[in-house]
């Protein structure tokens, strides 16, 4: 199970490469979306390894509130810089 956690950490670094090299604005947002979902998986696996179920509350709150930032940035770009 630790091996799977390490592999997901490696894949999250790979998908963060899209944030750095992405030519357009939306490529960066796509990479950020991938990174956020991989971070949620990492915390769930960490909670399963340690047997601490209170870490799952953090993932629950993050999945409820984490998408607000991405949706707000793409809305901002679509309206050409007006909120």
């Amino acid at each position: 199970m630790e091996i799977i956690l390490g592999l997901i950490a490696l894949l999250s670094v790979v998908s963060a490469g899209r944030i750095v090299i992405g030519p357009s604005m939306w490529d960066r947002l796509l990479g950020f979306n991938l990174l956020a979902s991989k971070l949620m998986m990492m915390i769930i696996l960490l909670a399963a390894i340690r047997g601490e179920s209170y870490l799952l509350d953090m993932v629950l709150v993050y999945s409820l509130l984490g998408f607000v930032g991405v949706i707000f940035i793409s809305w901002f770009v679509q309206r050409k810089g007006r909120v």
């Binding site: 956020a36 953090m58 709150v61 993050y62 509130l65 984490g66 607000v68 930032g69 707000f72 940035i73």
Partner: peptide
């Protein structure tokens, strides 16, 4: 928990 909520939602806005 506080860092994830504040850093990704509120400070972006």
């Amino acid at each position: 928990l506080a860092e994830a909520v504040i850093g990704s939602a509120i400070s972006t806005i």
